[in-house]
Design a protein around this nucleic acid. Structure first.
Lengths: 128, 128
DNA sequence: ATTATTGTACCATGCTCTTAATACATTGAT
DNA sequence: ATCAATGTATTAAGAGCATGGTACAATAAT
């Protein structure tokens, strides 16, 4: 199953974020070996060059390390992974609130919107 | 003051979103005339072609209409503007919750994160 | 030693986005 | 009638992204 990409942003960035999520949520465990560049490229239906670029970005972030010929491994430092989750969660929240603010919605509106997603897919009438 | 753009995404899209926000939050009122393509391009420090592209996108969305030689005007239909705000708020919330879910955080985490932004810039230690 | 697999590097091509520089048609003002 | 301002269209150039294809160095397995 090829991954789903958004044409608005570079694919290698979306791949980077996808794998980063896989690491953070534990699909790839700490210290674990991940598939090869070519395997991952095939799985994502993407060129190996593009996959390589995404993986290199994750090395810079300290989440992956390359062992020349034996493969790539997730960092065995769980604190690094936890820090990545926390930083990402804060960043996502900051961006979300900032975007809401730009259309005239504040913190109470955010809470209300999120609560409207509690059960089904949130449909919403009047805010502000 | 040139607008601030993110190099990760096409500028014309970011301009579109910027002006859309200006319309939704009332900086450009319903039925009001907006500056010319060349003026806006200068204000954003961007090529007129790029600005034109952003404005065309907003016409397709029904928020703007072009009057050949007299200029561009915001729709005078306030319902359309309100609908845009509502749709955008829901979309932003949907994306936010989806991204949180991918790193193992759920609805309660979202509420907690947002509350941590209540006063200053939210710093956050342990979630999940 | 040989082979297969790994990460890595390079190059050419095509595509989109952005800029720059013009140009044209239409309309309001003079 | 003339002029200025408007939206709009066109072309050429450069940059970044993605692909396809190829190649090399290092190591693990045989």
């Amino acid at each position: 199953m090829p991954w789903s990409f958004n044409s608005e942003r570079p694919i290698f960035l979306q791949i980077m974020e996808h794998i980063r999520s896989d690491i953070i949520c534990g699909r790839y465990g700490a210290g674990e070996k991940i598939p090869s560049v070519r395997e991952l490229a095939a799985e994502a239906a993407v060129n190996p060059n593009t996959m390589q670029r995404a993986l290199s970005a994750l090395e810079e972030a300290g989440l992956l390390s390359a062992q020349r010929t034996s493969g790539r491994f997730v960092t065995d430092n769980r604190e690094v992974i936890e820090a990545a989750r926390s930083a990402l969660a804060n960043e996502l929240t900051r961006e979300y609130l900032q975007k809401l603010k730009k259309i005239g919605l504040g913190l109470p509106d955010a809470l209300s919107l999120i609560n409207s997603f509690e059960k089904g897919e949130g449909e919403n009438g009047s805010n502000s």
